[in-house]
Nucleic acid binder design. Sequence first.
DNA 1: AACATAAAAGACACAAAATGTCTACCCACA
DNA 2: TGTGGGTAGACATTTTGTGTCTTTTATGTT
Lengths: 90, 90
Amino acid sequence: MTKAEIVAKIAEKTGVEKGAAQAVVESFMDIVKTSIKADEPVYLRGFGSFIKKTRKAKKGRNIKAGESIIIPEHSIPAFKPAKTFLGELK
Amino acid sequence: MTKAEIVAKIAEKTGVEKGAAQAVVESFMDIVKTSIKADEPVYLRGFGSFIKKTRKAKKGRNIKAGESIIIPEHSIPAFKPAKTFLGELK
DNA sequence: AACATAAAAGACACAAAATGTCTACCCACA
DNA sequence: TGTGGGTAGACATTTTGTGTCTTTTATGTT
């Protein structure tokens, strides 16, 4: 399912005009990104939370060259699904 | 940041009425959940993808009782952040 | 506007699964 | 038309997830 498809479904379900729905969805993505970058979690009850997490340095490898490589410590956006979501999925 | 807060920001940025924005966001969450449950990935270019993944069975432990427990194989909703998102975060 | 309800985070130990690295090609979304 | 993202492949180490209870906080309802 792509962005265009989900926007179409949202418009259909909510009655909101397609253009407006797309603007809302894109704004949503943008705000979540901005918020995570600012290290502020986004909490969506019944769905899940977006949180900035830190990954410790780790050994990876350059597949092409076959050599060991050190992946430095870095931050990632993590999604923690809500318990209700997990329950519906089991 | 909570749902109410993000809805307010979206309304402010897009000009879409707050009530409509909230309906869109909630519909968005609902559709993503439904799609994942149907094992259909949701691709959001520039943001990330939601995919249903399978976790293999694993040993955990009941902290309270201190006993080993087997966590059976199960499905989870995974979020894979877009490369651009990761780049902005590093 | 305030209250009641329900949902989520945190914390504990530990074993095994999952991750993430690079490169390049190809397809499909925007 | 341009570019973002999936895919594959090897391997060491980090991360994960379990149950339960408490406390905090959002949600929506009277």
